[in-house]
Design a protein around this nucleic acid. Structure first.
Lengths: 248, 248
DNA sequence: TGGATGCTTCGGCGTGCGCCGAACCATCGG
DNA sequence: CCGATGGTTCGGCGCACGCCGAAGCATCCA
């Protein structure tokens, strides 16, 4: 009775997440990667029509955002808050008393730098995106991205093409919510080109059997000089390694 | 299809919260105060039978915990994680783009010290509970509380009765999840007695038309000497006071 | 232009679940 | 012992909603 307004609305949100099919879609989107309706249908295990209905509801409630691209529609979580809410629900669902398992050393490397499909993700990628925005080479807004005039010059100097697409309709610059950092990093054609260039220059190297990227000494220098990054990029020593009971 | 296990379970949790009646109950419990089934029924606006069914489900899913007490049953949120999940859902429900409104100066005073029914809550109360536990005068575990032998002597010296109840079956020592601190503070007969004593001694004073408590200079000294609290208890200066646009 | 693919809208089926009335247990007061 | 009060269990009603088949748009490719 009291408190009705807030109660009702939280119920609506929770109710939307509280359907198995929709929950599976949202979980799939927690990776940060935008997915098409078809991919989401597959994740949810229902037909395309059903999926379409679900997506319309999630969209209407502003839990998701969409981007049309040719005959595909890319869906992603609408905001950080949504991701946090789902994360919190996962925590509860993972049966309360079980302690939040600390990330292992392998995860630490992943968190630092990794590939996300064809571009970079992790602390490094987020720092790069931040730096580019700070210098106004890039303007990121809610999934979309814009390269400024100065930005074009900068990328050109660095050896990246920012011209019109050759045969692809894929956008030049998109953002992608970073799974570990929960902040946007650079995707799209430009993001892919940046990863290629970094591999070419030997600034990062793929680690075997993992999506993790190793940042080389040359890379440390290069990223610092080019993007003005001040952090050090060594894999941090993990305090939880010292905690008894976590060793296998 | 992939990821089914996690998706399914998060859906179950969200689905439980996603009913208007249950959401209202959970919201009511976000205050930290344990409530009886009848009170929850009133908050939800449904009959007692219906409420009973809801509570059974929430209990079964470990979202709530109960404590029997005479012919009453006190329900409370089962864990911090549950409170966080509901908080996150509230944030989403409060329509994404709206920025998390910073607390005003009035709230700052409330956060520092306030009454919670008949006992104290806020930073001060949590600090007191912490101190009492540190000295092993009190042992708090998950809603229940125990006064140790040394504790009885301590409270006796301080002028608080820890003897058996006179006419009440209300427990001597209970914990109550602090709304602002999200950590337990002291409730029960002992908590109530402590507030009375603090008011008597002039250590705190009720502020007009508010549940906030003002900590007097005598209180600062007294709490420090008695409970070994080192923090200063002035209402913190608020950075957001300087932010343009928040002035009325 | 015609066919393939991705996605949405429409309509109808089935069922899960929230609701309440009534009856049933437990606890407190006298 | 008795009634009063708080809480739960049972049974049946009814709606809301998730599901799919079929049809309808939009976009890409030849």
């Amino acid at each position: 009775m009291l408190n009705m307004a807030s109660g009702n609305t939280i119920a609506e949100v929770a109710s939307l997440i509280g359907d198995a099919a929709r929950a599976n879609m949202l979980s799939a989107l927690m990776g940060g990667q935008a997915l098409t309706a078809g991919e989401l249908a597959h994740h949810a295990g229902v037909t395309a029509q059903t999926t379409s209905g679900h997506l319309a509801k999630l969209l209407d409630a502003r839990l998701l955002a969409v981007e049309k691209q040719g005959r595909h529609r890319y869906y992603r979580l609408a905001s950080l808050e949504v991701a946090q809410a789902i994360h919190a629900l996962m925590t509860v669902a993972a049966s309360g008393p079980k302690r939040h398992r600390p990330a292992g050393p392998r995860d630490a490397a992943l968190r630092l730098a990794r590939t996300c499909y064809d571009h970079m993700a992790g602390r490094l990628a987020v720092a790069i995106a931040d730096s580019l925005c700070d210098r106004d080479y890039l303007r990121l807004s809610d999934g979309a991205g814009l390269v400024t005039q100065e930005g074009r010059r900068f990328f050109c100097d660095f050896g990246l093409d920012t011209g019109p697409p050759l045969h692809s309709r894929r956008p030049l610059c998109r953002t992608c919510l970073d799974w570990s950092e929960r902040r946007p990093h650079l995707a799209g054609r430009l993001g892919a080109a940046l990863l290629d260039k970094a591999l070419d220059l030997g600034w990062v190297a793929r680690m075997p059997q993992s999506r993790a990227l190793r940042i080389t000494r040359a890379g440390e220098m290069g990223f610092a000089a080019t993007f003005g990054l001040v952090s050090d990029w060594r894999v941090p020593a993990l305090p939880q390694d010292a905690v008894p009971g976590t060793a296998p």
